[in-house]
């Protein structure tokens, strides 16, 4: 029994990751919507603020980050919802595996289907919002790390609100304040690079935030699911 335990624990992570990726592949339209949202809102910015490149480049980094945050919030709502409704969440809760591992698998799948695509299209947005050329690499790095943080913290909020009918709005209320550090250091990374400063320190802090979220968020989400999913 003991020798097989590590393999089993690992399989909890891999199985849920594979399952969620497969589900996402079958519902490609749904997966695309955060990215489309991300692109659409970016056309609102020149319309709402100004089409002038000189002014746009000042707000580009912040705007891209805020839109990434909103796109994540929109999608993280459904992280546990369909599993809760079809009963597979109950199955996850009663498996002998450590609960944080399947949750981490689900969050990884969520990041692969939202955070990563958002990161990959972000240079396009940078181009549209005339982000200076020095900002692209930091934008990619910070969004990749930061969107993983957003998914992880969002999972806690999704777990807390999974059984509520109007959970989506409440979820954004719960999670938004927790996102503030990510936004601060994410935009700071890009802005530092644009200003010609060393952009590694804020990125390193973003990495630290990511490490802390990987360690703590699945635990908190597991605790939350045990409370909320049974009600």
């Amino acid at each position: 029994m003991l020798s097989s335990a590590p393999r089993k624990m690992n399989s909890g992570f891999v199985a849920w990751l594979r399952r969620d990726l497969l589900l996402a592949y079958r519902r490609r339209g749904e997966v695309a919507s955060p990215v489309v949202f991300f692109l659409m809102v970016s056309t609102l910015i020149p319309l709402g603020l100004t089409p002038e490149a000189a002014q746009l480049e000042k707000v580009a980094a912040g705007m891209i980050w805020i839109m990434a945050l909103l796109a994540t919030l929109l999608s993280v709502d459904g992280l546990f919802a369909s599993d809760y409704h079809d009963g597979s969440l109950e199955q996850m809760l009663i498996t002998p595996q450590l609960l944080p591992l399947p949750i981490l698998g689900k969050v990884t799948a969520h990041w692969l289907t939202t955070g990563l695509p958002l990161t990959l299209v972000s240079p396009l947005l940078g181009l549209m919002l005339s982000l200076p050329i020095d900002g692209y690499l930091p934008l990619l790095c910070s969004l990749a790390l930061g969107s993983a943080c957003l998914s992880l913290v969002g999972a806690v909020g999704a777990a807390l609100t999974v059984s509520l009918r109007k959970g989506g709005l409440l979820l954004s209320l719960l999670v938004m304040p927790l996102y503030m550090p990510v936004i601060i250091f994410g935009t700071a990374t890009v802005n530092a690079a644009v200003d010609g400063l060393n952009w590694l320190p804020p990125l390193a802090i973003l990495g630290a935030l990511f490490a802390a979220s990987v360690a703590l968020c699945p635990l908190a989400a597991a605790g939350a699911l045990r409370v909320t999913a049974s009600n």
Binding site: L160, L178, A220
Partner: peptide
């Protein structure tokens, strides 16, 4: 209670980053 605990972990981080 879980949310309050998550918030407690975050408050020092939020304050420092702000």
């Amino acid at each position: 209670a879980i949310l309050a605990l998550v918030g407690t972990v975050n408050i020092p981080i939020i304050n420092k980053s702000v």
